[in-house]
Write a protein that binds this DNA or RNA. Structure first.
Lengths: 192, 192
DNA sequence: CGTATTTATTAACTTTAGTGAACGAATTTT
DNA sequence: AAAATTCGTTCACTAAAGTTAATAAATACG
């Protein structure tokens, strides 16, 4: 698992042995059981997550209903809004599978970043990249119908359709579970 | 206008006179006329933009139709996907008003960032902030109906409704111009 | 200035999503 | 193992968005 992390980092910066040891000594790896809630609405957390194995889900509870807005899987990084904003979280984050994740604390990050400016650069590159990706994603969502979004998801993240319950996928696609069922039936119809 | 920029920067880092002069000497301020296209589909640009005054619009052309996905106004920063990705742009960026903007080049940014690590930190903070905001925005979009999105826009960016043509707003809200017209009529109906 | 084009609205009709309810299947709880 | 809950699908119905077309208003252009 350590190597998975170092491989990921090496896409952005190169690390010396010293730096690798520094990261190692932070002891950020965590095994979390399916169903564990990492962040709750109203909480002021300072934790960011990096998924090495498994799947995290972000969801709101609006009028008593769960609204899933994001899934984070292998190699996905997530800094919740409340960490950046220093305000109570508006959403929950839970594990949809037994997962191995990296948890970092923003206070420690500040320390590390000032000790190793390289990390600052890496974080900058990573969040610029994630921002660009997020925008493209949003654009695709805006410019397509629920059916197109579903077909697009099959192409881009086929694993999600297997590993995540249908009703969570539905709100991820911005629709109700019944509509997703219907839409899937419609697609099957067309194929035959 | 210079002061507007320095005020913005001061939210993230503090600058010495030397650093201010360094920025100044880059001569990045540009006046652009309404209608100017800053980035075209297929282009490999290295330019990022910061809006001091005016409004930029990002749009795709899909099946011959313009699909507006974003507006950038005063104090908004924008690094197009193609700059991060080093790939041809999928969308256009144009000025919807006479504007004063800052144009920076990614090659120069790399230089500046290595000379003044502070800038690296600022860029990291800025893009982390923008990423968190973008996600919240996307979440709101996903979890609400076109009508709610429109009402939300009135609250959050009332200026846009004034300064931007209706049909561009429509695709920004993920719907057709006719639907926006109808939806507006429906809201008026309810109020009375 | 008048003409052409673009923009916004309205209407009729079609398609698709939301809603509430019912049902069996799967999963969890006891 | 039985009971309870959750999940996915289907159905009938309602509400809202897409589509096509017509028209009026605003804007741009020669």
């Amino acid at each position: 698992m350590k190597n998975v992390l170092f491989n990921f980092i090496s896409k952005y910066i190169s690390l010396t042995e010293d730096e690798k040891n520094a990261i190692d000594s932070l002891d950020m790896f965590r095994s979390v059981k399916k169903g564990t809630i990492l962040l709750e609405e109203g909480q002021k957390s300072k934790e960011s997550y990096f998924v090495l194995k498994g799947c995290l889900r972000a969801y709101y509870i609006i009028d008593g209903e769960e609204k899933t807005t994001a899934f984070y899987t292998e190699m996905d990084a997530l800094t919740p809004h409340c960490v950046v904003n220093k305000a109570p979280s508006q959403y929950f984050i839970s594990c949809t599978e037994d997962s191995i994740i990296l948890i970092s604390n923003s206070d420690i990050e500040v320390e590390i970043n000032s000790k190793f400016p390289k990390f600052d650069t890496m974080c900058r590159m990573l969040s610029e990249e994630l921002l660009a990706k997020e925008r493209i994603n949003f654009d695709e969502f805006k410019t397509s119908s629920p059916e197109q979004r579903y077909l697009n998801l099959i192409q881009k993240r086929p694993d999600l359709i297997q590993r995540v319950p249908q009703h969570q996928l539905a709100s991820y696609l911005g629709i109700k579970p019944q509509s997703l069922s219907r839409l899937r039936a419609r697609i099957m119809e067309k194929k035959s």
